[in-house]
Each structure stands twice: as structure tokens, then as C-alpha cells.
């Protein structure tokens, strides 16, 4: 366990140190109006949506699945909430809007679960359907416009503060709940069992289908919360660009964290590290002063490096060399 997390941890520390060298004030924290500000807080705040989606993705991947539709689902959540809120500034409307959005997301998760567990379609393909159609649905909800809202309560979700930014607190709360529910009960083990062999787990009395169904719903709800955060942060719903490519970032975070795409085991701490690495990488690129779009190149390098380090074949080759050198 410790061993597997060593590399991601080292990568994160290296990135943070690089930031410290470039901007010496990176680690400094200051309190202003009872709000905490600083480089690290920014990293956490901007990384919160990715972390949330990655948490849902971790459980999906643990069952040997994948969910490509989370970005589209996030866009739908933001669109539904913003359209419902409209020009209202009341907290009640905001809450109803958010509940509606999350309920719809749960429904979309049920749909994904139905395709995967009910019809037995490969997860990549099953969720590709919603990934393609979902943005269209989000556009349909917003009628192709960028819907802006001006609601104090809604703004709290993504841009608010309770000493720390609310987004961080929400993400950490979800992380805590998931960690508790899956690691303090048998649920985590059952999820892993389904990932190793769904048929064998079913024969052993595990309700594989229900578990698969549950993880897709959970992933969609996480995506929904992340979508609300993204849209609340800018007080607008952009059906085209909200959560664009966030599914890739989330998958990346999960993989960097040492959860194998082959399913059967997962690490929530790893996912946390993975999400932090991705966000720190993005922040680093900004602070170094390279065009932000070039982040993609660094991401590509990180993915390949991490995958190579984790791939059994590459590991075998490396350890072979280690043995070969002294002799």
C-alpha cells in the first residue's frame, strides 16, 4: 500500500517544491476577513471538482468499469440548476434547483448502470452514449445560451467561504463519507470483488448488478455536485465548456493514484494524491508562465510515465535491469 503511493507522493512533493522555487510565497497562507487565502488553498479549491469526479470514477473503475459521461453530466447539472434559479435570488429556489439537478444526475447514473449492469454493454461504449448525447441535452436545457444567475445562496457552493472555500469542504466531506462507507463496512471489499470477477462474486452471493448500479449512480451524483461547483463558481452555466475533458482528468487522477484500470482494487488516498498532482501541475504551468494550453503536453508525459511505472511488463524490465547491473 505505502509502496504504491510512494511515487505519486514523490511526484506531488517535487511539483510543490518546484512551485516554491519559482514563487517563494507559494506556501504562505494569510487570513483575510476570516477567509484563508494562499497558493495551497487555491490548488485545493480549483482541484475540488476534479477530486469529486475522480472519487466517483475510482469506485466505477474498481468494478472494472469506466464512466466517460461525467463531464456531460456535470454540464447538465449546472444547466438545470441555473435554468431553475433564473433571475431569483432566494435561497429556497437555489436549493430546489440544486436538488432537482442532483436528482436528474442520479437518474442519468441509473441509466448508465442500466446499460452496463442491465444490458451488459461494455462500460466505455455504454457511457459514450451519454457523453455524446449529454452535451446536447445540456444545450437543450439552456437553449444554447450561457445562462447567468445572480443568487447569493447558489454562489456559496463554488465560490463561498467557511474559513476555507466551501468547495474544498464539500469535496473533503464526500471523500470522508466514501472512505468511511467503503472501508469501514464490507462495501469496499464487495466492490473490489465485483471488479475481480463479477460472475464469481455473484455466485458467491454478492449482488454484483446492484453494486455496479450503485457505483454508476454515485459517480453521476459526484459529477453533478462538481457541475454545480463549476457553474456556481462563475455564476453561469455553459453547456459547451463546463466540465469539458474533466472525465479525462478524473480518469488520469485515478490512474496516477495507483488504481488499476483492470479493476479489483482501488485507493482513495491515491485518487486524492492524483487529483492534487493534476491540479498542482496545472497551477505550476500557470506560475511558470507557459501558455496554459501547453499543460496538455505535461499531462501526457505524466500519464505515460505513471503508466509505465505501474505496468507489470515495464516493472519486470526495470527490475531485470536492476539485477543485471551489479552482476
Amino acid at each position: 500500500m505505502k509502496n504504491r503511493l510512494l511515487w505519486p507522493l514523490l511526484a506531488l512533493v517535487a511539483l510543490l517544491l518546484l512551485n516554491l522555487v519559482v514563487t517563494p510565497s507559494f506556501f504562505s497562507l494569510r487570513v483575510q476577513d476570516g477567509h484563508l487565502y494562499g497558493g495551497l488553498v487555491d490548488v485545493l479549491k480549483n482541484g475540488a471538482p476534479t477530486l469529486l469526479i475522480a472519487l466517483g470514477m475510482t469506485l466505477v473503475i474498481a468494478t472494472r468499469g469506466i464512466d466517460l459521461s461525467v463531464g456531460a453530466v456535470a454540464a447538465i447539472a449546472g444547466a438545470v440548476a441555473c435554468v431553475h434559479i433564473g433571475t431569483s435570488d432566494s435561497a429556497g429556489t437555489a436549493i430546489v434547483g440544486m436538488v432537482l439537478a442532483l436528482a436528474l444526475c442520479a437518474l442519468l447514473g441509473l441509466w448508465n448502470g442500466f446499460l452496463v449492469a442491465g444490458l451488459g454493454i461494455q462500460p466505455i461504449i455504454a457511457t459514450l452514449v451519454l457523453m455524446t448525447a449529454g452535451r446536447g441535452v445540456a444545450m437543450l436545457v439552456t437553449e444554447g445560451q450561457i445562462v447567468t444567475v445572480n443568487n447569493t445562496a447558489y454562489k456559496q457552493v463554488g465560490a463561498g467561504f467557511v474559513v476555507l472555500p466551501t468547495a474544498i469542504l464539500i469535496a473533503l466531506l464526500v471523500l470522508g463519507v466514501v472512505a468511511f462507507v467503503t472501508r469501514r463496512t464490507a462495501l469496499g471489499m464487495l466492490i473490489e470483488a465485483v471488479g475481480v470477477n463479477p460472475e464469481a462474486s455473484r455466485l458467491a452471493g454478492v449482488r454484483s448488478r446492484t453494486i455496479i448500479w450503485t457505483v454508476y449512480v454515485f459517480a453521476a451524483v459526484c459529477a453533478g455536485i462538481a457541475g454545480l461547483m463549476i457553474s456556481s463558481n462563475v455564476s453561469a452555466a455553459d453547456a459547451n465548456n463546463a466540465g469539458l475533458w474533466i472525465e479525462m482528468d478524473a480518469i488520469l487522477a485515478v490512474v496516477i493514484g495507483g488504481t488499476s484500470l483492470a479493476g479489483g482494487r482501488y485507493s482513495l488516498t491515491g485518487t486524492l494524491l492524483g487529483a492534487l498532482i493534476i491540479q498542482t501541475l496545472t497551477t505550476t504551468v500557470y506560475t511558470i508562465g507557459v501558455a496554459p494550453e501547453v499543460t496538455l503536453v505535461f499531462k501526457a508525459v505524466v500519464v505515460i510515465a505513471v503508466c509505465l511505472v505501474q505496468a507489470p511488463k515495464a516493472r519486470a524490465a526495470l527490475s531485470f535491469r536492476k539485477v543485471a547491473v551489479p552482476s
Binding site: 469506466i66 466505455i124 479525462m248 480518469i251 488520469l252 490512474v255 484500470l261 501558455a291 494550453e293 501547453v294 499543460t295 496538455l296 503536453v297 505535461f298 499531462k299 501526457a300 508525459v301 500519464v303 505515460i304 503508466c307
Partner: peptide, 17 residues
């Protein structure tokens, strides 16, 4: 899936380079 995802990031990033 993962390798070509990296390829996707790389090629897009190279455009912006």
C-alpha cells in the same frame, strides 16, 4: 484507452506549443 488518451493530450498540447 489510456495510451491514446495520453496521445490526445500530447498532440493537442503540441498544437499550442
Amino acid at each position: 484507452f489510456i495510451v491514446t488518451l495520453a496521445g490526445m493530450f500530447l498532440a493537442r498540447g503540441l498544437c499550442f506549443l
